[in-house]
Structure formats: structure tokens, C-alpha cells
Simulated scan of single mutants.
Amino acid sequence: MRILVTGTAGFVGAALAQRLLARGEEVYGFDNHNDYYDPALKEARLAQFAGHPNYIHQRADLADAAAVDHAFATFKPQRVVNLAAQAGVRYSLQNPRAYVQSNLVGFVNILEACRHGNVEHLVYASSSSVYGANRKLPFAVEDAVDHPVSLYAASKKANELMAHTYSHLYGLPTTGLRFFTVYGPWGRPDMAPILFADRISRGEPIDVFNHGHHSRDFTYVDDIVEGVIRALDHPAEPDPAYDAEAPNPGTSNAPYRVYNIGNDQPVQLMRFIELLEQNFGRTVEKRLLPMQPGDVPDTWADVSALRRDVGYAPGTPIEQGVKKFAAWYRQYYGQR
């Protein structure tokens, strides 16, 4: 199968591309290699599979409609996974326009290309951040998500709305996956696991926001990739049980689905830090600080819909995942 994946120099995109290539798919990678974080890490991820005979790579920006159209016209993908986006909740407070270009303009370019290219199925990354100010746990796709607390979250909710219009108007099967705190080898250096690992490996104090009372549904990258592939292999279909008088936000009478993809086992942030300390063999000072703007205290994914529909079953305990992450960190960054 010909599968176009955007964001293949990114954390999840690189892991997904390798899994798809390993099972014999042809993969067309699309990534702009921006400098939001160290481009050398992106190049190192890509180097793991860039020479594969079934892999093609294009360096371009999703906001460049001509570049997107070129990729679709030359490769003619059967299915598409859109993982490229301007990520980061906190950065959206500093540079909001970057989110409009990548997450809104870029996404409509993908939708248009899928529409005109007769793509069988579009799977795209949404985010747990769409739950915003919600406090009912666990977060379920049936919940209303109308109170985002960052522009990043709003842009991801907008993606779900945009996808539904294309599913409704043009019959394009779309599946949105709300990712919950992905971690593991080759992770993003702007996220807590690497920020904490950097500090702990050097014996330096770490900043812990919300006075350490955060919990997160940390999900190991291999489990995320398995879920993405399972979703990709099950194109969205209209829900025969959909009731327009009592609508379910996760389904539709169009070929549209939205799912949570997480571990369904929230972990206290202090426990995650403790596991990192154990794996690095040292304990560091924790500077307890107030919660930051745009952040939320807790996340917890109800993944029952994804379990039911595609057999998703995350299987990496936090202890095992942190151990693998710490081993990779020491190897890649040369820290001992």
C-alpha cells in the first residue's frame, strides 16, 4: 500500500514510518525540518530509515499548497497519516501565528489533496489538549470539548471540525486520534521527559509545576504507533447508530471518527520523576512552582472506543517504558 505520512522527521512520525516500512508498505514522508527544536535530532531520526528502498522523502511545509499537491500527484497515496503540526502548548502563547499556518492552513491543504486524490482514509493527530478546562476524568470522546485553554488546543479541535466537513461533504473517511503525552526513545526535547532527564543526568534541580500535583496519561511511543496503524487499517465508516437528536461527538452519519489514544493509566508526575531518578542513579532537588498558563492539572484517556473498534491494547508499563527511554537517552546524548 502507498501511504503518505507527514511529520516523518518527528517523534511519532519517524517511529510510524519504520513500522510501516517493516511490514512492506511504500511510504512517502513529508516534513519541513523546522527549528522549533534541534534539527539534528530530526535528521538522526530520519537517518534510521531514509535509505530504505520503499521510502521517499520531501522537505517542504504543509502550508505550501503546491508542495502538498506535488506530493499527492507524484505518489498517489492510497492512505494518509497527518502527524505534522506546530506542537507545544506553551509555545502557542509566544508564537500563535505559527499554529495557524501549520495546523489550520496546512491541514486544509491535506484535506483538499485527499479529497481530489480519492484517498481511502485520512488519519490525523489531534490532542488530549482539546479537553481544555474539562475536569471529569477519564476524558471520553463523548464529552463536549468547547473550552480550550491554549491556541494549540483550539487548532486541534478545529482540525476535528474541518475533517468532519470533508467527511460529510465529500465522503472522505477521516479518523482523528487524540494523543495523550507520548514518551519514549527519540522523544521531543521540549517535552518533560527529556527536560527532566537533562537535569537529572547532570544532578541539577528541576522545575515541577502545579507544585507537583500533575498527573499525565503517559503513553509509550510503540503503543501509540500500534494504535495509529490499527486505526489506519480500519477506514472510518458512517455510524449506523448515530442519532442527530442526541449526537455523539466521536462519530457521525458521515465516515468520521475521533478516538482517544493513550495508556488509560494516569501516572503522578512525581512518580515519573522518581522512575527517572532511579534509572539515572541520582536524586535531584525539585523546585515546586505554580501551574503555567495553558496547562491542565490532569489527563486520563478513556480508550474504550478504540479498544472496541480496532482492538487497541497498550501494553507498556510505565516502569518498562521509562527504563527504555533512559537507556536511549544515555546512548544518544552520551550521558552516563
Rank of each mutant, 00 (worst) to 15 (best):
76 K>Y: 07
76 K>F: 10
77 P>W: 12
77 P>N: 15
77 P>F: 01
77 P>C: 08
78 Q>E: 15
79 R>A: 05
82 N>E: 13
82 N>M: 09
83 L>A: 13
84 A>R: 00
85 A>W: 00
86 Q>E: 15
86 Q>W: 13
87 A>E: 03
90 R>S: 15
90 R>N: 11
91 Y>L: 12
91 Y>N: 10
91 Y>A: 14
91 Y>M: 15
91 Y>Q: 14
92 S>N: 11
92 S>I: 12
93 L>M: 14
94 Q>N: 10
95 N>I: 09
95 N>P: 02
95 N>W: 10
96 P>H: 06
97 R>I: 15
97 R>V: 11
97 R>Q: 14
99 Y>V: 01
99 Y>N: 06
100 V>T: 09
100 V>R: 10
100 V>S: 07
102 S>L: 04
103 N>I: 07
104 L>I: 15
104 L>K: 09
105 V>K: 04
106 G>A: 09
106 G>F: 09
107 F>C: 08
110 I>L: 04
110 I>R: 00
111 L>W: 06
111 L>D: 03
112 E>P: 01
113 A>D: 04
114 C>W: 04
114 C>Q: 01
114 C>S: 09
117 G>P: 11
118 N>Y: 07
119 V>H: 01
119 V>D: 09
121 H>R: 12
122 L>H: 06
122 L>Y: 11
124 Y>E: 09
124 Y>G: 00
124 Y>L: 05
126 S>K: 05
126 S>H: 12
126 S>W: 00
127 S>Y: 07
128 S>R: 13
128 S>W: 12
130 V>P: 03
131 Y>L: 02
132 G>C: 14
133 A>F: 13
133 A>Q: 11
133 A>I: 04
134 N>D: 13
134 N>Y: 07
134 N>Q: 13
135 R>W: 06
